[in-house]
Design a protein around this nucleic acid. Structure first.
Lengths: 179, 179
DNA sequence: CCATTTCTGTCACTCAGTGCCAGACTATAC
DNA sequence: GTATAGTCTGGCACTGAGTGACAGAAATGG
């Protein structure tokens, strides 16, 4: 079993803060020092892959047709993002303040990358680009929360779509379809 | 001089992470143990008052007229929020990842309070309330960043207004003024 | 086989944060 | 005045995250 899996299992059963790095190391049969050779911090175990996923989505965004407009491009591309974070991970993050903080920060880093691309690709000024991407993040967040509120009974992608409809900012008018 | 001022001065000159709690304590003429009787963590020094300010604004929000609608109410009330965080504090937070993370988390806590009030006072469902407050936070954030981008040359309140115009979500149509 | 690189554990360290206790200070009551 | 109770403080020992340095094991390559 991989180190990250061992750690996540301990986090899930005991809680993040109640699990020491030495616990993880012992369970994985390595030393504490070696743990820190694989992960720079204890928190990073939980966020393994999130940054990588962010990079993937950034690339996808850069490949959307320019004619699509920023809001639609973000909508399409972000439907995946929330899917990839497992339930257990979400539960853990939501219930641990330190992880919540770290999650916000990580996600905002990706959002900043989005903003740069949106600015270049769709020809917006920095202010508007920041604004639009921040609104998209807001929509995604609300969709994710609503999904949890409903106990996972509704399709995530559908909720994201709904959120993007409700949150569409005034600076991104809907694509006209014959009117 | 107050403990928080001593600490902020050290943070400003040496940086947050380069300043130990013992440094602060020594400079303030108290023991390390006493420092932690005034502030639960080193980070909390930087965020002194932010939560209290949040509570104030939550109250203000609760007192806005119902007829105003959520978006306008948030706009009015949030114009103060960013004003209250000093430049130096902003600079420090922006340049320290751990503080950035903590800031996001703190602000999101306040936002959740907003959402509850918006939901009750303006009769929205939880989903929409979360969405609208998250969009407002996005607008505020973008305005604040733009203010820094412009080197503080433009009026903050004006930028917030502008951001709220650009970011107005589809679920909060503008108040009709005779049309 | 030997040489080099890489991986690993151990040890010692710094720093944030906590629990405990003992002494100092203050306020009130007698 | 003294006794007493509550609060504030420093000191000490501790846990736990994270780092630097070093030495030995293991893989790699000739």
């Amino acid at each position: 079993m991989q180190l990250a899996d061992v750690a996540m299992e301990l986090f899930s059963s005991r809680g993040f803060e109640e699990t020491t790095v030495e616990d993880i190391a012992k369970a994985a049969g390595i030393s504490k020092r070696s743990f820190f050779r694989y992960f720079p911090t204890k928190e990073d175990v939980v966020f393994e892959g999130v940054q990588a996923l962010g990079d993937d989505i950034v690339e996808e965004l850069a490949e959307r047709p320019e004619s699509e407009g920023p809001w639609e491009a973000l909508r399409v591309v972000l439907r995946d993002w929330s899917q990839e974070i497992t339930d257990e991970r979400h539960r853990l993050i939501a219930s641990t303040p330190a992880l919540r903080a770290r999650f916000h920060e990580t996600r905002d880093g990706v959002r900043r990358q989005f903003a740069e691309i949106v600015q270049r690709r769709f020809g917006l000024d920095a202010f508007t680009a920041e604004l639009v991407t921040a609104c998209a993040a807001a929509a995604l967040d609300s969709a994710s929360q609503e999904w949890h509120r409903l106990g996972g009974k509704k399709d995530r992608a559908e909720l994201v779509d709904q959120a993007f409809d409700l949150a569409r900012p005034a600076c991104c008018p809907p694509p006209v379809s014959g009117g």
